[in-house]
Design a protein around this nucleic acid. Structure first.
Length: 91
DNA sequence: ATACTGACCACCA
DNA sequence: GTGGTGGCCAGTA
């Protein structure tokens, strides 16, 4: 895969402000690869770096299964409260 | 090369 | 609300 693309994805994730969230598809689009949401997921999985990966949720507002607990905890730290395992509606 | 899998998504029934 | 289908791309066997 393209390292530059990976860097762009990391940059996009880093640019998500505290207290805000985004989605895999959104990150992919902002990184210049619309429709590559899966790639974003794989990158975050591989990363484990100093990027706020916990601010990235699924399109339906739920957390990825493997990290749901950790993610919910981190989000709670930033003032984001998940209701029944999902992010409340945001118009 | 094929086949399966996965931090995904949109669409339709 | 749920569940199936097709598309997506990269890694692994």
């Amino acid at each position: 895969m393209d390292d530059a693309a990976v860097e762009r994805v990391r940059e996009v994730v880093r640019s998500i402000p505290p207290g805000e969230t985004s989605t895999y598809g959104e990150v992919a689009a902002r990184a210049g690869m619309p429709g590559r949401a899966r790639m974003v997921g794989r990158i975050l999985a591989e990363d484990g770096h100093d990027i706020p990966w916990h601010r990235v949720l699924r399109a339906d507002g739920t957390c990825a299964k493997h990290v749901a607990q950790e993610q919910a905890a981190r989000l709670r730290t930033e003032g984001i409260l998940l209701v029944d395992g999902r992010l409340p509606r945001r118009p």
